[in-house]
Design a protein around this nucleic acid. Structure first.
Length: 410
DNA sequence: ATTGCTGAAAGG
């Protein structure tokens, strides 16, 4: 019935395995609400049943190498003596000049990394250590295997909890328009579910913040017995200990972002125009057959992505969804599922805004990235990039301000 | 498509 790629190794803690087996594969007659999951498959139009080999993380495209080559080219051309050579480069066009002019300083990180939007977790990682987050974008896939295993376990625990509330169906898609359509269809089914059942998991959020589109997924939203809308962010931990303050601070920031974006959505502050502008989606591009099929199955007579977007905005604003009242973070032990702690955090909008402004200032190129302060240098102990970190070498100052002349010579 | 592009989060 449903297919999913388990990324957790078979030797992972029994909690994961048993929880995963809670899925409703054999609950034939009355299956829970079904959400759709998209997967990229160019050739086939068949849905469901994805062979395990074709799944998983086929990441690590060569795009990052291209990026590195690009920047290498840029710095090479900068260090060459005459301006003429780079102007008439391989392709003999003067676009090299604009590239050159925009190079290094002028190109914002958003542009340099070819990003149209950011994930909420990009910003919370940035809250942990901005410099580490930057290295993560520059050199992805650098995670220590044992750290990756912890993340993997956490991911499957989250998946197990998601499957408690609904099935997942994998459908094939071929465009980013389809991917967003799937997201929208899921939202269209989840909003009424929240209002009737009182609980949903993995709810997508998106919205423009400080000029940058932010995209994320809320772990859980539910109504309390008092009728308040509560957000729950589950954090699983390898060791049965409460998190350090730095960890709590980061998680707190993450849920603040979720509320900020969710509230903006239900208040009608998020527009289709802004979404299209940032994502460069084509609202009139025809949707793929499997997506159309699921839209009809859900009772939505949509023809285009644009229709679907409008429908989502309407549903968000006209379903009597309240803003989020309570922000809760729950820490549980991975192996035993013991609750280690549960925190209700107060929403501080002013503080959030100034933090977000500060972080976005980096992304739009208004300031250099910075690493942690000396008091938090302990974070470097577990950082994969500690060896190469320019911030550390400079003792807490960015390299560009240390040796500005060094590159010009040569 | 001339000029390309993204499941988000997973934990420390």
């Amino acid at each position: 019935m449903q297919t999913w790629r388990f990324r957790a190794p078979l030797s992972s803690p029994s909690f994961v395995i048993s929880a995963v087996s809670l899925t409703r594969e054999e609950e034939d007659q009355v299956p829970g609400p079904t959400l759709i999951q998209s997967c990229d498959m160019a050739e086939t139009e068949e849905e469901e049943k994805v062979p395990a080999e074709a799944s998983g993380f086929s990441d690590l495209s060569d795009s990052e190498f291209l990026d590195l080559e690009d920047t290498q080219e840029l710095s090479d051309s900068l260090s060459k003596p005459g301006p003429s050579s780079e102007l008439t480069g391989k392709d003999g066009k003067l676009i090299n000049f604009t590239k050159w002019k925009k190079g290094l300083d002028v190109l914002s990180p958003m542009e340099r990394f070819h990003l149209k939007y950011l994930y909420v977790t990009d910003l919370s990682t940035q809250n942990w250590c901005e410099q580490q987050m930057v290295y993560g974008k520059e050199l992805p896939g650098f995670l220590a295997p044992e750290k990756a295993a912890i993340l993997d376990t956490g991911a499957s625990i989250h998946l197990a909890r998601e499957l408690e509330l609904h099935d997942l169906v994998t459908i094939s898609i071929t465009s980013k328009e389809d991917a967003w359509a799937v997201k929208f269809l899921n939202m269209l089914s989840m909003i009424p579910t929240l209002q009737s059942e009182g609980c949903i998991r993995e709810f997508p959020v998106f919205g423009e913040v400080e000029g940058v589109l932010l995209v994320g997924v809320i772990d859980e939203l539910h109504y309390t017995p008092k009728g308040e809308l509560e957000l729950v962010e589950l954090k699983t931990r390898r060791r049965p200990m409460l998190p350090l303050d730095a960890q709590k601070k980061k998680d707190c920031f993450q849920v603040h972002l979720y509320k900020y974006i969710f509230d903006a959505m239900v208040q009608g502050k998020v527009t289709t125009a802004s979404l299209i502008h940032h994502t460069k989606l084509h609202p009139e591009k025809p949707l793929g057959p499997s997506v159309l099929r699921h839209a009809q199955q859900g009772g939505f007579s949509v023809t285009s992505l644009g229709d679907l977007m409008e429908l989502v905005i309407l549903s968000l604003t006209l379903s009597d969804l309240p803003v989020i009242d309570i922000l809760k973070i729950e820490y549980i032990h991975q192996e035993t599922a013991t609750v280690l702690g549960s925190e209700i955090v107060a929403f501080e909008e002013k503080e959030l805004r100034s933090k977000v402004q500060h972080y976005m200032a980096y992304w739009v190129g208004h300031r250099e990235p910075q690493g942690v302060d000396v008091e938090e240098a302990w974070k470097c102990r577990t950082c994969s990039y500690a060896d190469i970190c320019e911030w550390r070498k400079g003792g807490g100052v960015h390299s560009s301000s240390l040796e500005p002349q060094a590159k010009k010579a040569r």
